[in-house]
Design a protein around this nucleic acid. Structure first.
Length: 563
RNA sequence: AACCUGGUGGUGUAAUUGGUAACACAUCUGGUUUUGGUCCAGACAUUUCAGGUUCAAGUCCUGGCCGGGUUGCCA
């Protein structure tokens, strides 16, 4: 399946205009994650925008790590982020940068600001600073240090860098407007002291620039033309512009904001996802239930499906919540196209064919993809003892139930027509064996008389089957918007993971870790890295659409209770 | 209640910038089918409300209503 084209959203419109008017000769964007966690679908939206727009307009996109807070950042996050961006299908080429690459320049610019009377060293406590900032409806109060001599601030700032003061003892603040309606402009902190080693600069620094002081300037240094970010930074744009207009930066980039992605039944918040990992709710950042790119990869999502999803949801400034079913639909679309078909029984029930020659095994031919004959066929062993899906047999069933029931004839896909002649149960009434007879003239699934057999079910020869652990997933949360009514942890779905022991057709031995196949009539499954030579493990990526389930639900709701 | 932003079907997007509201998902009906899958056909909104400008308004103006963001030495 090819990538869906992205519509001309407001950002692409602006870029096209900037190029047409000659404002820019070429465009440069950047994707700037903080390496404090793993990337999730929300980031995919940003990545597809940043890299996508650059590619469409013949520009380039940088990967820049926003590593200004060593308290939260780690090298392994950096490595994982790079892997995820590459997996999604994007390439930053030579343009890998870090905000920390610019620490020396940023320091110089901070001194420049102090010298220009536009920044000062603050010595009030964090609490006092907060108190004096005022609130949403009342202006703040100027700091007693606001008008201290420039030389004094310069000296103090140098000593901050030299490590003379403890964490929190002082900060550097920009001198803007304590009465601004925009809180971000009330003399924002631009440097803080943190005696902590940084994943890249080690112990070279004990003062670190704040996001606001690093981002726009980093953009300027790299020649970013369009700095795209999410709406929560909208209030920061005036500050972004304040720095680039008061500092001798080499270029003046522009920031544009778009709405972040919200997906139903999950969440796109690094902080909350980290909590799920830290509290052991999920096994890891790449748990297949996680909306992280690594989790989705392990689950069996294709990069194409995620890119198509991002193209479909579009870019706007309005918040909304996308139906998870849209993602699933786009995923199925791609998987239907690329996934080879196989047979597997998730909830095995034994079928014994009474008139089958004892000990006889026959090979039947099955297509690897009904829609793509060019993908060839494979041979599957058929015998007198088979596994079928427990739900494919009913002792009593409504007329619309086309599967196995006493007296009914159904087609065993690619095999034979079987007619149910009886069944056995245990003391609890649970069906243990279904007895059938087969029509020797129906090999392959057709007969000369062309009689209609409505039902077709999948099967696996019990003597040849491979036992496998299969992990079935459901939404991680029960609520469309987890946490909407309180703590999101209260909305966890206790049934988000179910494990079953399935029986697979022998050819499944050749599936590779990470490969996705369709278990016919069931869903798409991806071989997990937990697989071993003697026990494969599969994750259900997504189930097939199930119109029978809907029909049956309706039948059961009807006036006369269904079977 | 301050400032900033936004409001098109159940959901996500579109509408040549003032000219018969389009597409996808979801839902419901049918048809095809050796996957109750795929595929095909059909149904499903007078654009938050009230006024105004205009031959003509989802697009422009005024007011109301509703939503999101903002008071880190996080990003």
């Amino acid at each position: 399946m090819n990538d869906k084209e992205s519509a001309a959203d407001f950002i692409r419109t602006i870029i096209a205009e900037d190029l047409a008017s000659g404002k820019h000769q070429a465009i440069v964007t950047r994707f700037p994650p903080e390496p404090n966690g793993y990337l999730h679908v929300g980031h995919a939206k940003a990545i597809c925008l940043d890299f996508g727009v650059a590619a469409e307009f013949g520009g380039r996109c940088h990967l820049r790590f926003d590593d200004t807070n060593p308290a939260k950042e780690e090298q392994h996050y950096i490595d994982a982020i790079k892997e995820d961006v590459r997996w999604l299908g994007f390439d930053w080429g030579e343009h890998l940068y870090h905000a920390s690459d610019y620490f020396e320049q940023l320091y110089d610019w901070a001194c420049f600001l102090i010298s220009a009377g536009l920044a000062y060293v603050e010595e009030q406590s964090a609490e006092a600073v907060r108190k004096n900032r005022g609130d949403l409806t009342s202006p703040g109060v100027n700091s007693p240090f606001r008008d201290r001599p420039i030389e004094e601030s310069l000296d103090l700032f140098a000593r901050m860098r030299a490590g003379e003061f403890e964490d929190g003892a002082k900060i550097l603040r920009a001198k803007i407007d304590m009465a601004s309606h925009n809180m971000v402009l009330r003399d924002p902190a631009i440097y803080r002291i943190q005696h902590r080693s940084h994943p890249r600069t080690g112990d070279a620094w004990c003062i670190y620039p704040m996001y606001d002081f690093a981002h726009g300037q980093s953009d300027a240094i790299e020649g970013i033309t369009h700095s795209l970010c999410t709406m929560e930074f909208e209030n920061h744009r005036p500050l972004y512009d304040w720095f680039t207009s008061h500092l001798p930066v080499p270029a003046v980039p522009r920031q544009y904001e778009f709405a972040r992605l919200n997906l139903s039944y999950t969440m796109t918040s690094k902080r909350k996802l980290k909590q799920l990992v830290d509290e052991g709710v999920v096994s890891s950042w790449d748990d297949p239930r996680m909306p992280t790119l690594s989790g989705m990869r392990r689950r069996g999502f294709t990069p194409t499906s995620i890119r198509n999803f991002c193209a479909t949801i579009g870019i706007k400034r309005t918040e909304g919540t996308v139906d998870y079913s849209l993602l699933e639909s786009i995923l199925r679309d791609d998987l239907n196209d690329v996934a080879p078909r196989r047979m597997a029984v998730l909830d095995p029930l034994k079928v014994v064919i009474g008139n089958w020659p004892a000990g006889h095994v026959e090979m039947v031919e099955a297509m690897n993809h009904p829609g793509k004959p060019e993908l060839g066929t494979r041979e599957i062993p058929f015998s007198g003892e088979l596994w079928i899906e427990r739900e494919d047999f009913r002792e009593q069933a409504p007329g619309k139930y086309f599967r196995l029931k006493p007296g009914a004839e159904v087609r065993f896909r690619y095999g034979y027509y079987l007619t149910c002649t009886g069944f056995e149960t245990d003391d609890k009434g649970e069906v243990t064996v279904v007895r059938c007879s087969y029509d020797p003239e129906s090999k392959g699934g057709n007969t000369a008389d062309e009689r209609k057999v409505k039902g077709t079910i999948h099967w696996v020869s019990s003597a040849h089957a491979i036992a496998s652990e299969v992990r079935l997933y459901d939404h991680l949360f029960r609520e469309i918007v987890p946490g909407a009514n309180g703590d999101f942890m209260d909305d966890l779905n206790p049934d988000s993971l179910t494990m079953v022991m399935a029986q697979l057709e022998p050819s499944m031995m050749d599936v590779a870790v990470g490969e996705v196949v369709q278990f016919e009539r069931s869903g798409y499954f991806c071989m997990d890295r937990d697989s071993s030579a003697d026990k494969p493990v599969f994750n259900r990526t997504v189930a097939l659409r199930d119109s029978w389930a809907k029909l049956e639900k309706k039948l059961n709701q009807g006036p006369s209770e269904g079977a």
